[in-house]
């Protein structure tokens, strides 16, 4: 397990040196603009504007990092052959894979936490009277991070057996489907054959449900989040990530390098 940590810290260092965290500057600009706009429109919806814009930006920036860097975690190492010297050392392939995953999830944790704190400060700045429900945005940021971890796991899995471009498309495709899992379950039954109905239903349970992690409207209206939802989402992300990573390890452990 120690070797997982060594690989993870190196992956984090790579992200920092490749200036991945520079996106925080972009986010800071978005938040400043949002604060100015919110200040100019009528009182009452300023919180909605700032929170919606801020959480959307955190999610979008995080998704771009999770998909593009996630796909490159292993494929770039195979392409440049940087993992040859490493895998000849006493490192198991699953340790390498988990280390890469851990490194990017750590990078995303630092990134989303910094943006979350930025958003919270911007909100405090425009609001005249802080209320208890404002802390909901911190939970919303935590949920975004859980969602990103799941996306990284998917990107890693796909990049273990296909080309980077296809891996990006597959990951993005599953993400989009995962946003509409609820709609998939509630499709009007009468328009489809019974077989098709069963298929879409099973498919909807197989797909990651990303909508579960979206509590933007709760955050925008400063409604408190029930503890059960936090526990449920944490468990869901942990179990789903474990399954996807196990699949990735199974594929990667048998893979012939070039």
């Amino acid at each position: 397990m120690k070797r997982v940590g060594v690989v993870a810290l190196n992956t984090f260092r790579e992200a920092v040196r490749d200036r991945v965290l520079y996106n925080l500057l972009f986010f800071a600009l978005v938040m400043m603009a949002a604060s100015i706009i919110a200040g100019q429109i009528s009182i009452g919806i300023e919180q909605t504007v700032i929170v919606t814009l801020g959480l959307s930006a955190i999610s979008l920036i995080g998704l771009l990092i999770a998909v593009f860097i996630g796909v490159g975690l292993v494929s770039k190492e195979m392409d440049k052959r940087t993992l040859y010297a490493l895998l000849a050392k006493p490192v198991r392939r699953w340790e390498f894979l988990l280390g890469k995953f851990g490194g990017l999830v750590l990078t995303l944790a630092v990134n989303t936490a910094a943006m979350g704190i930025g958003l919270f400060l911007a909100l405090m700045y425009v609001k005249s009277t802080p209320e208890q429900g404002d802390a909901t945005i911190l939970v919303a940021v935590y949920f975004i991070w859980l969602k990103l971890a799941l996306v990284v796991a998917l990107a890693l899995l796909f990049s273990c057996f296909t080309t980077p471009l296809l891996a990006i498309l597959f990951t993005a495709g599953i993400y989009i489907v995962g946003l509409y899992v609820q709609e998939l379950r509630n499709l009007p039954m009468q328009v489809m054959s019974p077989g098709m109905t069963a298929f879409t239903k099973y498919l909807s349970y197989l797909m990651p449900n990303f909508e579960n992690f979206n509590i933007m409207s709760m955050a925008a209206h400063a409604r408190p989040v029930p503890g059960s939802l936090i526990a449920q989402n944490t468990l869901y992300a942990a179990v789903y990530c474990s399954i996807v990573l196990t699949a990735a390890v199974l594929v990667f452990s048998r893979r012939n390098l070039k």
């Binding site: 040196r17 052959r81 040859y84």
Partner: peptide
């Protein structure tokens, strides 16, 4: 093991790379 036409993490210095591998060797 020295791979053919080796390529290493180019964001690291030589000393950092060797230190990384030494950590892998515990």
């Amino acid at each position: 093991y020295l791979p053919e036409q080796p390529y290493f993490y180019d964001y690291l210095t030589a000393a950092e790379l060797l230190d990384y591998f030494a950590r892998i060797h515990d």
